[in-house]
Design a binder for these strands. Structure first.
Length: 339
DNA sequence: CCGCGATA
DNA sequence: TATCGCGGG
């Protein structure tokens, strides 16, 4: 993913609980992709049902959404539409990485190096045709709404924070900030230590919120300038960025010269990319209006039957859904006290 | 990724 | 009661 704004944005620690009763626009592709990449055994193989179909994404969506709904969070998933044509180079680049990783994976397995095997297996992760449909199916059983974006999901999620239909967007990527999202949540999951598979080390995962205005104030730049900074560092639409320019240099250059056209050192390289079009993708993103985001009821029976068909154990389904049912009953009791 | 049982 | 390691499908 090319857009390393991590060092520049103002990231504040937060918790899942802080978003109770708020509508959060979730980058569906980003979430599902992460489940597919990380829900794997020690050898790197994904979970699959009795017919060999991958189920890692279903497992991830099940448990995470139970947590969201139990806390009163109102997720709306935003799926990608047609990518901008400028993205084709980046899409090809990712395909190539997956191809290379497949070879490396097989070598690591042959060598019996499980740590490498898992790492390379993760890099082969790809979203297969049926997975979007299957994920939407799970969301429907939860009564969780989803939106099909006309183009980039992150742009659509950003738009929802501006119409007031969502409080924030949630993704690991920073694109929605350049698209004008009011707020971005990263690590939108329960906090805690996570073990790195096959190694004796841990990482602390904590949700964090980025308030776009706060970041712009702190950096002393406009959103237009932040987009230019992004282009200098590298985006999905110019993955390589500019030679020897990282986040710090990019910020310094834009603060000094104010825009791409006025930075003398980069003019030659600037002519090699369609920077006006890239700006437009972020500043005038292709989005659609949606009239009302409706949350439904949980279809416990439908969910149970569907997951049973996909080889989930009945005991686990039942105990998970019972937890959800308990949490939802408790919430409606709390609400009843007002009447 | 996530929950759960084992462990202390 | 809190942390760890394992297995899930």
């Amino acid at each position: 993913m090319g857009l390393n704004l991590k060092e520049l944005v103002v990231r504040d620690k937060t918790t899942l609980e802080a978003f109770s009763s708020k509508v959060i626009a979730i980058d569906a592709y980003n979430a599902i992709y992460q489940f597919l990449a990380s829900i794997r055994g020690p050898d790197g193989l994904q979970l699959s049902d009795s017919e060999g179909r991958i189920t890692s994404h279903l497992s991830g969506l099940l448990y995470r959404n139970i947590n969201f709904l139990s806390l009163g969070i109102k997720p709306v998933y935003v799926f990608d539409g047609k990518p901008p044509s400028l993205k084709t180079a980046e899409i090809e680049r990712r395909k190539q990485i997956k191809k290379d990783a497949t070879v490396k994976y097989e070598k690591a397995i042959a060598a019996g190096n499980m740590e490498d095997a898992r790492k390379f297996a993760q890099q082969t992760t790809s979203m297969k045709d049926g997975m979007v449909k299957e994920s939407k199916q799970i969301l429907t059983y939860f009564g969780i709404p989803y939106i099909d974006a006309p183009s980039e999901g992150e742009a659509m999620a950003a738009h929802l924070t501006n119409t007031g239909q969502a409080y924030a967007s949630a993704s690991q990527d920073f694109d929605s900030i350049l698209c004008g999202a009011k707020r971005l949540i990263r690590n939108f999951t329960n906090s805690g230590r996570r073990k790195i598979p096959n190694r004796n080390t841990y990482v602390e995962i904590e949700p964090e919120i980025i308030e776009t205005q706060k970041t712009l104030d702190a950096l002393g730049v406009t959103r237009e300038q932040l987009v230019d900074i992004g282009i200098l560092i590298g985006t999905d639409f110019n993955p390589n960025g500019f030679d020897r320019i990282g986040p710090k240099t990019a910020l310094k250059m834009i603060k000094q010269h104010s825009c791409l056209e006025d930075i003398p050192q980069i003019q030659e390289q600037l002519q090699e990319i369609d920077y006006q079009q890239i700006r437009k993708i972020f500043l005038e993103p292709i989005v659609a209006e949606v009239d009302e985001i409706v949350f439904g009821q949980v279809d416990y029976e439908g969910m149970t039957n569907y997951l049973k068909e996909r080889s989930f154990s009945e005991d686990r389904i039942q105990s998970s859904l019972n937890r959800l049912k308990k949490a939802l009953e408790k919430k409606s009791q709390n609400l009843d006290q007002w009447f």
